[in-house]
Design a protein around this nucleic acid. Sequence first.
DNA 1: GTTAATATCTTAACAGTGTTAAGATATTAG
DNA 2: CTAATATCTTAACACTGTTAAGATATTAAC
Lengths: 186, 186
Amino acid sequence: MSKDTYHHGNLKKELIVKGLEYIERYGVESLSLRKLADAAGVSCAAPYAHFRNKEELLSAIQEFITEQFMNTLSEAALYCKDRSRLLIELGTGYVLFFYENPLYYSFLFNGRCPDLESYTPFLFFRECVVTTLGNTIDEDKLEYIIIALWSMVHGLAGLITINGVVNREHISVEIEKILTSLEIRR
Amino acid sequence: MSKDTYHHGNLKKELIVKGLEYIERYGVESLSLRKLADAAGVSCAAPYAHFRNKEELLSAIQEFITEQFMNTLSEAALYCKDRSRLLIELGTGYVLFFYENPLYYSFLFNGRCPDLESYTPFLFFRECVVTTLGNTIDEDKLEYIIIALWSMVHGLAGLITINGVVNREHISVEIEKILTSLEIRR
DNA sequence: GTTAATATCTTAACAGTGTTAAGATATTAG
DNA sequence: CTAATATCTTAACACTGTTAAGATATTAAC
């Protein structure tokens, strides 16, 4: 609110957003607090009023990305009318998210990876699998299938992210073929 | 061969090995050329006679790990007498390798990840799938199943590595249940 | 074996990094 | 209005990767 240059006014949020932009373009390893502070027109020690250290800023950025990721998944599920294609749409959304932001993947799932049991994107995915396959499959098998499918989509995202073999339009088809090749439904 | 302290004699190899040990204990991000040089009893600029920069040393370490990884996979296949369990043993070896060296995973598959088409562990894995399922499955499906299985084991390794939910003895059983839950064989 | 070329290493320095301490300035609470 | 607090600056520290210039050892050529 102040026009004075001493107080920035919205530094915490700007560090997160600008930091995210920087990661998108150049990757995590070349991100520095000093460059961020410079870009925000602030001294190199200013960020420490909002974050104890660099790691804490990175965690904040991670939460920010996770929210976007979660939105992508729930939207994919929402816009899916044909319930038999729910897992395909979900998997496609999962992979596409990281396909379009390849640098997010290594940032999210490296050292800073959250516990699966409380990771909302995973919990949501689990629910979708249960509602899709719940009454067509043995109860004891279901748990393993959830892990298997999550692992597969997760691993596939990682591979595509890095190697980028498949082009964007083919990802959905690719995932459909992979999932149906497993003939999960029975 | 020389007892003089000026020439180290085996610096390149020692940097790779000591670097790997350091990564095992503390992770990649806290590895520095200077600490490595110190530990080898050598000046901070000495490594630059063997590596153009830090990245090149990291690549060398990566190749070193990949060799070990490849050995683990081929041994798992070699010691597997019951061919119907080949994929299970292979998957178990895959996951166990990173379970025992969690810091390897993020190091191997982050930014530095190799092209799958020429990545020997993947080519070996592909061969194993083909010999196991080759004549029991449609040709066009096979390619997708290969990707699906590799993605799954790869993703599972990443998740277990980070969350470490399952304990060591249960990993084999876990993978068996996951693989059989998919009922790949038909 | 002596000499020249090369590989390997040291010293010294540079710019960039995260982080902290001490103090200045603005905002908020009482 | 004043005191407490949040936010920011300046200055410094130790550490990082990297380079240039030069020293020393190893190897190749003769």
